[in-house]
Amino acid sequence: MAHQSAGGAAHGSVREYVNGLMLSLLLTAIPFGIVMTSGLNRPMTVAIILVCAVAQVLVQLIFFLHMNTSSEQSWNVMSAVFVVVLVAILIIGSIWIMNHLNHNMLLGH
């Protein structure tokens, strides 16, 4: 079991790190394997890549960075959630706006 230090930073165990490593290897192998060997259609492949990436980020946050929902960690998690929202606005917003601009610029064609 992970135990907490004074600052809310948890320490893991060997088992936790090994589990994290195994899951990460699996979630890396799946998208690479699909892209390198199979002829799956594009939207399906993109979906699998994205799902595996999000899953692996979560795996590493939980198993390597030991994030959890305990009260000692509430500030760590809260600030991280805030940044996830910011990042989503930044990336999705940029793609959205630039696609619209691109579309408008094509009117002359």
Partner: peptide, 22 residues
């Protein structure tokens, strides 16, 4: 509190680095 505050401060730096990468 020193160690915990420092690690939390560093965590906030990392989150700001996330925005750079975003």
């Amino acid at each position: 509190d020193y160690a915990g505050d420092t690690v939390f401060g560093f965590w906030v730096y990392i989150l700001s680095d996330c925005i750079l990468f975003a």
